[in-house]
Amino acid sequence: MTIMFVWHYATIKKYEFDLHNKVSLEWLLALGPSLGVARVPGIGLVFTDLTSGIPANFSRFVTNLPAYHRILVFVCVKSVPVPFVPPAERYLVGRVGPAAHRSYRCIVRYGYRDVHQDIDSFETELVARLADFIRYDWHRSQHTSPYAEDEASHSNESSSERRLAVIGTVTFSGTPGYGIEESVEPASVSIGFSTVESVTDVIEMQAVGAGAVERRVRFAIDDDDSESDGQTKMYVQLEEELRDLMTAQEAGTAFILGHTHVEAKQGSSILKRLAINFGYNFLRRNCRGPDVALKVPPISLLEVGMVYVV
């Protein structure tokens, strides 16, 4: 029980450190050639425990190496208290910043009996879900009224990020089968969905269980209405974003992980310093690292050293 308590206590403190030291979206959007920061070809997968905000290890990465990838994805792998998570509910995807920035957030949920994918299938599946989300997002913006867009943009400015959408594997006419808009933190539950015929059908359901949230399910189905100039421009931007994603995948993927060292802050009690500086760090050194658990090939791995003072 002492080992379990030390591990749990230090893990919670690490998460709180990440939560209080994350950087703002404005900082990310300000990075550019004017600051000597370049965008390089490829996909950069930044693994983090945060479900919102920009992690501190990414800011450390950009500070030491003033460049990051053309497609940037903040990936959070979560284990949820259900045995299995259906593939259609595994990926929650959203944008980080405007579409032109090509930055996304993806929360991948696994049940405690799910078998994690190897890195090749994971990368392929992640890119496929990103492509589905891009189609869904453009399709949603096409069917959103200007007033709703203004309201959504104002909401996005206040929350700094757009809502996450669950992207499934079922598709209709090239668009994702459905998207679930999350108004709060993602729930650790598994829910089945029924099929509807009309895009106007919106199902409100309340998930039962701890951490359940109200979910609005919108089924996206293409229509054959005549395209206006605005729609034509939108389709061109959609194709351009999908082309950038495919080009980045061909250029290669880099996995950016944090290599952490935890220290007790000055003034801590002797018991806390023993537990953190010796107990937790000893356990961490003798446990599998994230790169081993995720089966990341060494040639694609970038580790960012971080010192956590808790």
Rank of each mutant, 00 (worst) to 15 (best):
M4L: 10
V6T: 13
Y9R: 15
I12M: 13
K14Y: 13
S24F: 03
W27F: 01
L28N: 02
S34T: 13
I43M: 09
G44H: 05
L45N: 10
P66K: 10
P66F: 14
L72P: 00
C76V: 06
K78L: 14
V80T: 07
A88I: 13
R90P: 06
L92Y: 01
V93S: 01
R95N: 13
A100T: 07
S103W: 01
R113L: 15
H116Y: 07
V127M: 07
V127C: 11
Y136A: 14
W138Q: 14
P146F: 06
P146L: 04
P146K: 11
D150R: 10
A152S: 09
S160N: 12
E161V: 06
R162V: 12
V166F: 10
T169W: 06
S173F: 08
Y178G: 01
G179I: 15
G192L: 09
F193H: 08
T200N: 15
M205A: 12
Q206A: 10
G211H: 02
V217A: 10
D224N: 15
V236P: 03
L242M: 08
R243T: 02
D244N: 09
F255A: 02
F255C: 07
H259T: 12
H261F: 04
V262R: 00
L271A: 14
K272Q: 04
I276N: 01
F278Q: 09
R288V: 05
G289I: 01
L294A: 09
I299H: 11
G305Q: 13
V309S: 08
